[in-house]
Design a protein around this nucleic acid. Structure first.
Lengths: 128, 128
DNA sequence: GAGATGTGTCAGAAATCTTTGACAGGTGCC
DNA sequence: GGCACCTGTCAAAGATTTCTGACACATCTC
């Protein structure tokens, strides 16, 4: 397949991190994993949320590269999925954000608008 | 009014910042304001979104303490609202997040659950 | 006064995110 | 086999966020 793998621009990565961390449950999940690594079911009991829900949150965190899950075999042969936190570091300042914003995909604007009639119209046009 | 003003815990503040920054439009708004301060209407034209929408986004950013708006009088007496970016700095690491998570309000859990019957039940109970 | 530009707010549609409650496997132990 | 754990996935309900299209009100210029 001659398909180029997505260049994964800086901006989108930061956006993913921010939306991943911008949720109380997800913050608590990270906090719990910093204390000590565990597997899904135990973690669900610890924070008090259902497993399907935790599963979703973990997926979001993993997609952002903040945690990593590994399927391990416990002593007795049971299959257990342990999660660890990635030692991420992310400086958040106006400059950082601005820099990231410039490499955001989904732009779709670009064309200089003819600012004729004003009124409250939104400036969107193509897109859809 | 003998009401104690909310202590505004660290955790909630960070959460607010993250959810505020975790949005492409809001990131672009910050980026635009870093370049040069402007007023609402001009900014709306610059990024290509409707004014009511921009107004909402700016409110969110201001509530998180990332930007500040000041109502100024232009030379001709027109009232214009200019926005500036706050020089915020925020280190984002597992440790930081964990620390913030411990001071999150909205907890409502706390009681150790008796893990008798298992099945897929969510661990929520009181609340609502 | 009409027209252009600025401010703000509101109700409701549209799109997303969050959450629950099943279901369908696996393995180990009595 | 039956029970207790573990894993995953799905559809649909609920709650939020995002967005649009009016509306109301100011000031300045012609």
């Amino acid at each position: 397949m001659p398909e180029v793998p997505p260049p994964a621009p800086e901006g989108d990565a930061l956006l993913k991190i921010l939306t991943a961390l911008g949720n109380p449950h997800r913050m608590r999940i990270v906090a719990a994993l910093v204390e000590n690594r565990t597997y899904v079911s135990a973690l669900a009991r610890e924070i008090g949320i259902s497993r399907p829900l935790l599963h979703m949150h973990l997926q979001r965190l993993e997609a952002a590269g903040l945690v990593t899950g590994t399927l391990e075999a416990a002593d007795d042969g049971k299959t257990v999925k342990y999660y660890d936190v990635t030692p991420f570091v992310c400086e958040l300042t106006p400059h950082t954000v601005a820099r990231a914003a410039s490499t955001l995909t989904d732009v779709e604007a670009g064309t200089a608008d003819r600012g004729t009639g004003r009124s409250d119209r939104g400036a969107k046009e193509e897109a859809k």
